[in-house]
């Protein structure tokens, strides 16, 4: 099999999530793990790594695409019925099996919510297998919040504790804070740590913009959270997805890893070992 040859997938539905992000449903059957990614092609434009944002327990498969470059701009132009090329799923994904029986603390910022949504859905669909679920989500403002309906619904449920931080106050955020002062605050996502009881037996699952990791990691380490129980998923230039083209390589000296093949999910121990992994 030629691993570089994309197969076709039909776009089933396109939904605008924010002014810069769209949710695409794809007609493919993959047995993926939350946290894995696809190489998505638009012929004539190119190929880009896009993380899967749905759980394998939910169909159809969904990807959340932020318009940041040529390929993603082309993806944003697509309507239902259009076809894209896909390869994958690639990468290790989150160890959902290994985390069974434990509490999960999901920590995300911005578009980082996309891969964590897969983890969240998976845990909700296997609710008895996991302990308490918490979601810490940092957004810039309400317009840039992903999966609004789903998260708002969770906020009012007992399935998962939702903590929300926002950097720019708008009407919605203001009202949310008024309604849930114990779990909504202004500031960056690390501000939410003050509201959460960090059980060191839990697993922390982290995804956010590159600058976020260092601060979240420090916060967790300062609270004596064991680095072995931190899982972080990284963004790099995963051009081939299969550990050949080497663009996504991280680290220096003796410790180097492919984000596409050895990651994109790394542990807190990796963060201590691999230079530059979290900046």
């Amino acid at each position: 099999m030629n691993e570089l040859l994309p197969r076709q997938a039909k776009v089933l539905k396109v939904e605008e999530q924010t002014p810069i992000e769209k949710l695409l449903q794809l007609d493919v059957n993959l047995n993926h793990r939350p946290g894995q990614f696809l190489e998505v092609s638009v012929a004539g434009v190119g190929e880009a790594p896009i993380s899967i944002c749905s759980s394998p327990t939910r169909k159809p498969l969904e990807v959340c695409v932020r318009r940041v470059g040529r390929v993603t701009a082309a993806l944003h132009r697509l309507s239902p019925g259009a076809k894209v090329g896909i390869r994958g799923p690639y990468g290790n994904g989150f160890p959902m099996e290994a985390m069974k029986g434990s509490d999960l603390i999901l920590i995300s910022g911005g578009l980082g919510m996309a891969p964590l949504r897969g983890v969240l859905q998976y845990a909700l669909d296997h609710r008895k297998d996991y302990g308490e679920l918490s979601l810490l989500y940092g957004i810039r403002d309400y317009t840039l919040m992903l999966f609004k309906d789903e998260i708002m619904k969770l906020m009012d449920s007992k399935e998962c504790r939702v903590y929300l931080s926002y950097e720019k106050e708008d009407e919605v955020c203001k009202n949310l804070k008024k309604k849930h002062p114990e779990c909504v605050c202004e500031g960056v996502v690390t501000k939410l740590f003050g509201m959460v009881d960090l059980n060191p037996e839990a697993y922390a699952v982290v995804c956010g913009p590159p600058v976020m990791y260092r601060f979240v990691f420090k916060e967790l380490m300062d609270r004596n959270f064991p680095p072995e129980r931190i899982y972080m998923t990284m963004e790099r230039r995963m051009k081939c997805g299969i550990g050949k083209c080497r663009h996504c390589v991280v680290g220096a000296g003796t410790s180097m890893r492919y984000v596409c093949k050895d990651g994109p999910v790394f542990t807190g121990v990796d963060a201590l070992q691999i230079k530059g992994l979290i900046g």
């Binding site: 012929a43 004539g44 434009v45 190119g46 051009k239 081939c240 083209c245 080497r246 663009h247």
Partner: peptide, 19 residues
Amino acid sequence: CQCYDVSDLLTLDVRKGSR
């Protein structure tokens, strides 16, 4: 050295091309 980069080339009919 193993690194390679990939580009899509498009012809003027804007349908066909090569990677």
